[in-house]
Simulated scan of single mutants.
Amino acid sequence: MERGTRSVVRDRDVCRRHGVVGVLVEPRSQARCAVVVLGGAEGGLHEADAVALAQEGFAALALAYFGSPGVPSSLVDIPLEYVFRALDLLSARGYASGSIGLLGGSRGGELALLVGSHDERVGSVVSVVGSGVVTAGIDYAAGRLDRILATSGAAWTVAGRRLPHLPYVVPPELVRSIERDEPVSLRDAFAALPTGDELEAISIPVERVRGGVLMVSAGDDGSWDCVGLSEVAAGRLRAADHPYPWAHVVLEGVGHTIAGPPGGPVAPYGPGPGVTFRYGGDPVLTADARAETWRRTVGFLRYTLPRETADEA
């Protein structure tokens, strides 16, 4: 167990004992609810986000599910059961069913909605620039971006079954941009959303979440159409007359990099596999939106997660 800064305590050993890669960050005073923090397609561990949540009074488990030692190197065939083990850990720590939240950014937002729709212990889900549709995996071993897009299969599995997903496309203009070393918008590599039964097959059943759902989308997202992808989930919640608080907030003019606490990078461009990605959005607006999204996230988690433990109720 490690002493952290500003009244938080970090524990990696408890994660190892439960068979997950992560760090549990708790405030020194007893937390009443807990949040699992899930990063995006960059992989790795979002420990700083967990620390920021712990400083707000939550227990926070930063969970690595790929891209770190001890977990797969690529976003391919990741079992949802792995995240369920993180919920087992928090349950063992005394966080009751309904007092556990999920916070994910980008592909982590997609994963948060998926896990919340499969595990009734989840009482709140926040998906920032995420997706209400299951999308394809990312096999970084394939090399350059166009080869990754052409070869990647499923991102997620449940009970050993690969989940159906929206496929990638590799338009010729995208390949030309890569070969010219020009910045690319990854959103150009996603197939158009289908309709009817085909859309139903890849949509996340978010109406099954036994708690609140907040989705925050960037109106000028260069990484994917998070507005349209999240609106699929909003439509399901609307159609089901979801009995818990929910919202889909669209922040116009901002880019993909609004997930996480304020102060993180909001550059309009960033590195990718053999490419430079265009994240979109005005940098000043995006920085402001990042701060606003964090305020909304913390406020929503406080509003939707129980304010007292089972022993206190």
Rank of each mutant, 00 (worst) to 15 (best):
M1C: 10
C15F: 07
R17H: 13
H18Y: 14
V20A: 00
S29C: 08
Q30A: 15
R32Q: 12
C33Y: 06
A34Y: 12
V35G: 02
V35N: 02
L38C: 07
A41D: 15
A41R: 14
A50Y: 11
L53C: 04
A60C: 03
A62C: 06
L63S: 05
A64K: 07
Y65P: 10
G70C: 01
V71N: 04
S73P: 02
S73L: 14
V76W: 11
L80Q: 04
V83L: 06
F84S: 10
L87R: 10
L90T: 00
Y95F: 15
A96G: 08
G98A: 02
S106Q: 08
G109V: 03
A112W: 14
L113Q: 10
G116F: 07
D119W: 03
R121I: 12
G123W: 15
V125E: 00
V126L: 03
V129T: 12
V129D: 03
G132W: 07
T135F: 07
I138L: 15
Y140P: 01
G143C: 03
L145W: 12
R147A: 13
I148L: 13
W156P: 05
V158A: 14
A159V: 04
P164T: 01
Y168I: 02
P171K: 03
E173V: 11
L174S: 01
V175D: 04
I178M: 11
D181E: 15
D181C: 14
P183N: 04
P183R: 04
V184N: 03
A191K: 09
A191F: 12
D197N: 12
L199P: 06
I202C: 04
S203E: 00
P205L: 09
P205G: 07
P205K: 08
R208W: 08
R208P: 00
V209I: 15
G212H: 00
L214Y: 05
M215G: 10
V216H: 02
V216G: 01
S217L: 05
D220N: 08
G222I: 01
D225N: 13
C226K: 01
L229P: 13
L229H: 15
L229W: 05
A233T: 09
R236P: 02
R238Q: 15
H242F: 08
Y244P: 03
W246R: 06
L251Q: 14
L251I: 15
V254Y: 11
T257K: 15
V266M: 09
A267F: 07
Y269S: 09
G274K: 00
T276N: 11
F277L: 15
Y279L: 15
G280R: 00
D282H: 01
P283W: 05
V284A: 06
D288V: 09
A291M: 01
E292N: 03
T293I: 10
T293Q: 09
R295K: 12
T297I: 09
T297G: 03
G299V: 05
F300K: 00
R302K: 14
R302Q: 02
T304K: 04
D311M: 11
E312N: 01
